[in-house]
Design a protein around this nucleic acid. Structure first.
Lengths: 185, 185
DNA sequence: CCGCAAAAGGAACGGCGATTCTGTTAGTGT
DNA sequence: ACACTAACAGAATCGCCGTTCCTTTTGCGG
């Protein structure tokens, strides 16, 4: 084939990355072989290496995918014109957690402790999420205390920090509680 | 040699496990080879396999070691006769975090998402820690509100849960912030 | 439509790393 | 003090897995 059209190429990349995420959720980042991903994606090894330089590259793509999806959920609430309070916000975020993705997310944390590339991705995404939470809480503060709008942003910071922390802890609990679906030998 | 005395045997096991923890902190659970651990511990591969059935067994020992050490720190405060309040308690716990151990701890979380044995260890340790926090907060509540001791334990539960969550989040931040010391190639 | 280069398939390679095996050494119980 | 056996060192093994190579297929530009 000639060079695939950009849309098609992106589709293939996504197809592979999504298969990888499913595999990672089942067996973990390192226990997943390229063969596993070929089986899950329906594509061959050669094809995968056309779209990703190597396995590390693919792991990064998977990490970005999972983290981005979580950030996206948050983005919707941040953009809302009726900002929910911290408790409500946290409850909604927690309700939106998907166990499989939580597992991959936590695996990503572990990998980030030694792999600089993954670490940068994780830090970037968490910073971005915290910023969105910050906006969200600031909007809520401003709405609740119509008087004294001064310094709402500053007072929102520690609250956003705590919501983020509680959310991450819940992500961990979900990842640990979920069934760990066995792979048929 | 004949069978080592129990104390000596335990010493060897600890020597190996501690070397393993150092390696894991540098390179991660899966990127650490048995060869790395022989170099770090000063023992040979053959010797390691006398004391541990296989690598998974060693990883479990390392996980227990790291988690137990963190629980130990907490135990001291829980046993204190002047129980600190939640904020103070959290601050002290955070101050006691060691970056290298935080990294291994977070790696352990990642591994727990797919390895049932590790998962059991992590869940057991977190439950134990939460119980100690619960005791600690209950004692503090009872001291602060001399009147109305009724239901102090019930009211302490959600507080303990939050302290635990914030502590775990801080552990994650520490693991991600720490330098990721390179191994000389 | 057609041709061609890029993408897909899949077997082959190469290296790494967990585990095992063989001899050697040295603690321990008597 | 001695003998005996487990602990130890280190080399050899063996399977697995990431990556590449070569062939076949196929979709896009003209």
């Amino acid at each position: 084939m000639p060079r695939l059209t950009d849309a098609r190429k992106e589709l293939r990349r996504a197809q592979i990355a999504e298969a990888a995420v499913r595999c990672f959720g089942r067996n973990g980042l390192e226990r997943t072989s390229i063969a596993d991903i070929t089986a899950e994606s329906g594509l061959s090894a050669g094809s995968i290496y056309v779209h990703y330089r190597n396995k590390a590259d693919l792991v990064q793509a998977a990490a970005r995918e999972v983290l981005a999806k979580r950030a996206e959920v948050l983005g919707e609430y941040a953009a809302s014109d009726t900002p929910p309070g911290p408790d409500e916000l946290l409850a909604r975020l927690i309700a939106a957690i998907d166990p499989a993705e939580a597992r991959v997310g936590v695996q990503t944390w572990g990998e980030a402790t030694t792999d600089p590339a993954i670490r940068d991705i994780v830090l970037d995404m968490t910073d971005r999420m915290r910023a969105m939470l910050h906006d969200c809480v600031t909007a809520w503060l401003a709405k609740v205390e119509r008087h004294e709008p001064a310094g709402a942003r500053e007072r929102a910071a520690p609250i956003a920090h705590r919501v983020m922390a509680l959310y991450q802890a819940e992500l961990l609990y979900t990842a640990l509680r979920s069934p760990a679906e066995e792979t048929a030998p």
